[in-house]
Structure formats: C-alpha cells, structure tokens
C-alpha cells in the first residue's frame, strides 16, 4: 500500500489572528503552527493502515519552509518520507494542481486529506484533485477499512451516516472518529530527523481567486447576566431585544 497524506501547516486554534501590510498578509509573529486538525486524523489512519497492511506513508505539504517543523512532526508520527512543494499556497486551485502532479507521478493506492483546512476552510482541495486526476472522492469520511483492494467507508451525512464501497485508488477527506490522533514518541522524533524530506518547485502559478484584503469580525459586546431565579427575563430578552425566538 502506497499512501499519500496531504497536510496543512496551520495556526494552532488558540492563536490570536492578526494581519499586517494593510491587511493583506497574515501576521506570523508569535504563532504556533500545527498539522491541520482534520489532516491529523487522516495521518493517524494512514499510519494505522500501514501497520495493518504494510507499505509506506508519504506526507505532502504545499507551503513555504516555515512549515518544515510541522512536516517533521508528521514524520515523527509515522510517515516514512515527505514532500514539500516550495510555494505559498495561493488558492485552492493552485494547491490542488500541485497535489494532482504528485498523485499522477506517485502511483499511490490511497490519497488521504482532511475534511477541510482550518485556515482556508474551503473543503475544496480533495474535490478539485479528484477531478484533475480522474479519481473518485469521498468526504467527510469517519471510518475507513480496506479489504482486498476495496475500501469500506462510513461517510457523515446530515443527521447520520452512510456506508459506501469503492475500489482503490481513491481520495478521501477525513474527520473524526476515523482514528485517534497520534502523539509522536521519542523514537519517532529521533528517526524523523533523518527521514527524507524532498523539496520540489511548483508546477505553474495559475490561480482562480486572488486576495484583496483580510478583516476581523467586530468585537463581541458585554455579556448580560440574568439571575437564575428569573428565567422569564431571559425569555423576554431573547424575544424582544435579541429577536431570535
């Protein structure tokens, strides 16, 4: 089994988001970067499948060099090697093009991604790559087992789940509870230092959307506290002030 896992390098959820350069650039100062939370589930399942069925796991990131520590973390968790496409991820189309190139050349049996990135929140890249390389896409996947070249999948739908089957190779956008996140152990961290991380230059620079500017939502006002013995007041406020019931 040759598995490719696409990981994003994103600010930890607890990060304060700010912008610089007239609100056209993300402020990286003081930011702690992590593997995208949904991508982390994809990676964990990839490593489990490798342990179960044999094979290799390759981690792929489209991003600049400041993402290398996060890629090393994926190696420490259990990826065998990694590829970084050395470019700022300009838009989903650009990223999908880069991933599609790696998928076409690599002959992977399985391509795992996250359900969505926690910075761009597009939920788009897997669908685009699927069409570019002509492979089926299933997302959001909450359970994935492989038997005799066929995948058995549970996919989340509104109000429940649906069970599917598809032959390998295909592309999945993963989410909980597909696997438990893995925390790298000491041996993993040591071995990650010497595992190969290949840096490749991007193909083309075509994009389909371009950034004008960033902005932040307005600050939340003060919370209005209501006495626990006076729930009627809350009901009145929701009806007459907030007008939401």
């Amino acid at each position: 089994m040759k598995i490719l896992v696409c990981i994003t390098n994103v600010p930890d959820t607890t990060s304060r988001i700010a912008f610089i350069n007239n609100d056209t650039e993300f402020d990286k100062s003081g930011i702690q970067y992590v593997i995208g939370p949904y991508d982390d589930f994809a990676l964990a399942r990839a490593v489990e499948l490798k342990e179960e069925l044999g094979g290799t796991v390759t981690a792929l990131n489209v991003g600049e060099a400041y993402g290398d520590p996060v890629i090393r973390k994926a190696l420490a968790i259990g990826a065998d090697d990694a590829i970084r496409i050395n470019s700022f991820p300009k838009d989903s189309f650009f990223v999908a093009k880069q991933i599609a190139e790696v998928v076409k050349k690599g002959g992977y049996d399985l391509v795992l991604m996250g359900r969505e990135s926690s910075d761009f929140n597009g939920g788009q890249v897997h669908g685009m790559v699927g069409e570019m390389v002509g492979l089926p896409v299933v997302s959001p996947v909450m359970k994935l087992d492989i038997e005799n070249g066929k995948a058995k999948i549970a996919r989340e739908i509104d109000g429940g789940k649906e069970f599917l089957e598809v032959n390998l190779p295909f592309i999945a956008g993963c989410q909980e509870p597909i696997a438990e996140w893995k925390i790298p152990n000491m041996r993993g961290i040591m071995s990650a230092r010497t595992k190969p991380l290949q840096v490749l230059e991007p193909v083309g620079d075509e994009t389909r959307i371009s950034l004008k500017k960033f902005s932040l939502p307005p600050e939340k006002g003060e919370v209005k506290m209501i006495d626990e013995d006076n729930v009627e007041e809350l009901v009145q406020l929701l009806k007459n002030e907030a007008k939401v019931i």
């Binding site: 999908a96 788009q124 897997h126 669908g127 685009m128 699927g130 069409e131 896409v137």
Partner: peptide, 9 residues
C-alpha cells in the same frame, strides 16, 4: 463542497 470543487475544475 466536494461537488462544487469537482465542477469548478
């Protein structure tokens, strides 16, 4: 989301 992504390509 994935349907639209596929259609966009």
């Amino acid at each position: 989301d994935p349907v639209a992504a596929n259609v966009s390509v």
